[in-house]
């Protein structure tokens, strides 16, 4: 067994989750490998510490049965209410007799409240995207009270949220747009994501390196995945299968390299298409240049382990 193989299964070994043959193989490896033995010791202590410190929070064995009993009792309580209703109704009737305007005022109040609720109620949308591999390097933020704040739903990106990956240069964060598309961003990067009737918009606000890929849903939705970098933009047809490597460069231009399919691009002055295998540099204004390159030696989107 190699060290890599051993380390892949070491957590399962510590958790007592391996079969006897695998366990014996790891035992044998640990006997002759100091580094893996050290790691094993660390993992063992780490796991034991976590479980020990979390002990007071361990749900008791009867947690579920208590909940279900309370649930049944609450339901039964509610079912008893109708037998008490006549008394409540008669007291309301008394109130109506003594003050005939009461139901109209109450009705008007209900209508006002309902109207306000309809006006201000904004149903929660589904997320636009989910962070997958590398999510620990990124924070999802929402703009509230004049500042970006971390959301309460880590890993889920709703329209208008932004993904900030600043602290781990070189790390890759995978973004899952469901069956529509995938993306990867390379830290450092800050990316705002929106969804609207046209499709999905990603908006880097600084130098960023991104991989965008549409999966080709086969439908004729006409929706797009668009990246907007101030005035420069590139867009992919969500109905087709396309992939681009994009660099929002420090000079303010977008460099777009089409790996699969094709992309549409443009800026304040011009727009056009770029086909598979070609790379374009799109400035904020003027005619895009075809002399651009994204150097594969610096980075080639090899996925993290």
């Amino acid at each position: 067994m190699t060290c890599d193989e051993c380390r892949t299964h070491l957590q399962e070994f510590v958790d007592g989750e391996l079969g006897s043959a695998e366990k014996a193989a790891i035992d044998a490896h640990l006997t002759g490998c100091q580094e893996c033995t050290h790691l094993h010791r660390q993992l063992n202590k780490f796991t034991t510490t976590l479980i020990k410190i979390s002990e007071p929070l361990k749900p008791k064995a009867d947690f579920g049965s208590k909940v279900l009993r309370k649930f049944e009792e609450t339901k039964a309580e509610l079912n008893r209410v109708p037998s008490e209703r006549p008394a409540a109704v008669s007291s309301v009737r008394t109130a109506v007799r003594t003050f005939p305007a009461w139901p109209f005022i109450a009705g008007a109040a209900v209508l006002v409240v309902a109207g306000l609720a309809v006006m201000f109620h904004k149903p929660k949308e589904d997320p636009v995207a989910w962070l997958r591999e590398g999510a620990e390097h990124a924070r999802v933020q929402v703009y509230e009270g004049n500042a970006w704040k971390e959301t309460e739903e880590p890993g889920r990106v709703f329209s208008g949220n932004r993904i900030e990956a600043l602290d781990a240069p070189g790390e890759i964060v995978e973004i899952d747009f469901g069956p529509a598309a995938d993306a990867m961003l390379r830290a450092p990067c800050v990316l705002m994501i929106e969804r609207n009737a046209t499709g999905i918009l990603v908006r880097p606000d600084r130098t960023c390196r991104l991989w965008l890929a549409t999966k080709g849903s086969g439908s004729k939705s006409g929706k797009i995945l668009k990246l907007l970098y101030n005035n420069a933009w590139v867009q992919l047809d969500l109905d087709g299968s396309n992939a681009v490597d994009v660099e929002a460069s420090p000079s303010g231009s977008l460099v777009v390299s089409v790996k699969t399919g094709s992309a549409h691009f443009g800026n304040a002055d011009a727009n056009g298409d770029v086909a598979e295998g070609y790379t374009r540099s799109i400035g904020q204004t003027g005619k895009p240049s075809d002399a651009a390159t994204i150097d594969p030696k610096t980075f080639d989107w090899i996925k993290p382990e």
Binding site: A129, T198, G199, S221, K226, G266, D269, A270, G272
Partner: peptide, 21 residues
């Protein structure tokens, strides 16, 4: 690239009617 006008600006605020996710 042609000299044709740029794509229309991204509409805001976004109506949340895109259901493909």
């Amino acid at each position: 690239a042609t000299g044709s006008p740029a794509q229309p600006a991204w509409p805001t605020p976004p109506p949340a009617d895109f259901q493909s996710t």
